[in-house]
């Protein structure tokens, strides 16, 4: 994925919310990362570290919350974790599955002063 573009997106959101809340320092940034987004965590942290140098978010801790890939079967109403990216319902074997969660790429909250 494009971890640099993501780091820029996070930086924009952090700057925006820090300003809105008159924050002087950002200590923690909590992210929701869906299982299916294929984010390379080390790469994202590296890019963000580089971008945040000299800013209000320098040295902020990045907390990552993984959101599991959950599917819902439209035929039998089964809902659960999708294993091995197998999108056939483990219950009734139908292919009519919708993705409920697992595609998120979100800033959840910030810890600021």
């Amino acid at each position: 994925m494009h971890e640099m573009a993501m780091a820029e997106g996070i930086m924009d959101i952090v700057k925006d919310y820090a300003e809105k809340n008159n924050a002087v320092k950002v200590h923690t940034i909590s992210l929701l990362i869906g299982e299916m987004t294929g984010v390379v965590v080390d790469s994202l942290e590296f890019c963000f570290k580089a971008l945040s140098k000299g800013t209000i978010a320098e040295n902020a801790e990045i907390k990552l919350k993984n959101v599991p890939l959950v599917g819902h079967c439209n035929d039998c109403n089964w809902q659960g974790h999708i294993e091995n990216y197998n999108f056939f319902c483990p219950h009734c074997k139908s292919g009519h599955m919708d993705i409920i969660s697992g595609r998120e790429l979100r800033v959840e909250y910030l810890e600021v002063d």
């Binding site: 990216y85 292919g95 009519h96 919708d98 993705i99 595609r103």
Partner: peptide, 23 residues
């Protein structure tokens, strides 16, 4: 792009043609 087309729409195409699709 799963946000534009659902997986169920993909599998429906095979079904409509009477084909069996497995992953």
């Amino acid at each position: 792009n799963p946000s534009k087309t659902r997986l169920s729409e993909l599998t429906a195409v095979f079904e409509q043609k009477g084909l069996q699709a497995a992953i």
